[in-house]
């Protein structure tokens, strides 16, 4: 059998990459990947192929050969005709579908980690600056494990009486109310959530909820209640302890000297 041309090989590799991303990663082993991300990855694949074929002149010429032949070779007039019909037709169809496509509503680009204010507040009480305010029970972890445990237990109760409707039994953001919420509730089992923010940050987000988001956090659209209306300061700190205890992820701390 004739060895396929370099052009064909590249074309096949390109398509395979797409299939891999779209159906294997985005289907068999995980959830579907958004088109824009696939597009980004495919652009990279395209660049990679382009780099590979064009970095050496001989290979570049070999790659271009079928294109050249199709364009000018006397013996390839049928093929040329086919492409001369096919490509404009494809372009025609492509343009049509693009124009006729129904517009989709704008997504909800939301600031996931809004900028916290300088001071941490509970109602009107200033608890310190965002950097410095600490969980008053955190130190028990080292110096009084019993008390620490009891605070975690309190936190557990607070969580299951208030939070789990949305954030779920397993703290994975899949509570029984979660389906109808947009954006979805935070998933504390995600390693990107707890370890990236300080306890004071969580205190702020819990106590002020969706309505307490700052202007720089717009366009916000969070169903998170203003929990300071329902919970005491201690309860909020305790529930933060519980979150980290249950998931095993520690909120961000700031090392010595800050």
């Amino acid at each position: 059998m004739k060895k396929p041309s370099l052009f064909t090989i590249c074309f096949v590799i390109f398509i395979l990459c797409w299939v891999f991303l779209r159906f294997f990663i985005g289907g068999v082993i995980s959830k579907p990947i958004p088109n824009s991300v696939i597009l980004m990855y495919m652009a990279l694949v395209f660049i990679a192929i382009l780099v590979h074929i064009s970095v050496e002149d001989t290979r570049f010429r070999e790659f271009l050969r079928p294109i050249h032949e199709t364009l000018v070779d006397e013996n390839r007039s049928t093929r040329r005709l086919v492409f001369a019909v096919l490509i404009p037709l494809l372009m025609c169809g492509f343009t049509y579908t693009n124009i006729a496509k129904k517009a989709n509503p704008p997504g909800d680009p939301r600031t996931v980690h809004p900028t916290p204010p300088d001071n941490l507040m509970y109602k009107d009480i200033v608890l310190g600056t965002m950097d410095k305010a600490e969980n008053p029970f955190r130190h028990y972890e080292k110096d009084n494990p019993e008390a620490y445990k009891s605070h975690i237990e309190n936190g557990r109760t607070v969580y299951y009486q208030n939070c789990f409707y949305c954030h779920g039994d397993h703290l994975d953001g899949k509570g029984h109310f979660a389906d109808a919420l947009n954006p979805l509730p935070a998933n504390f089992q995600d390693p990107g959530v707890l370890p990236n923010f300080s306890e004071s940050f969580f205190f702020w987000r819990i106590s002020k909820g969706g309505p307490g988001m700052p202007a720089s956090g717009t366009p916000w659209n969070s169903a998170m209640p203003i929990w300071e209306d329902y919970l005491t300061q201690d309860e909020i700190w305790e529930v933060i302890l519980f979150l980290s205890d249950y998931t095993g992820y520690k909120p961000r701390t700031f090392g010595e000297g800050h």
């Binding site: 364009l71 404009p88 372009m91 025609c92 492509f94 343009t95 124009i99």
Partner: peptide, 26 residues
Amino acid sequence: VKRFIYPPIVALLSLGLLIGLRGFVQ
């Protein structure tokens, strides 16, 4: 109505482009 006007124009343009490319290569 644009959906009926633009596609043929694009098709013609791309055909023109192909012819141009052929000329260039030749």
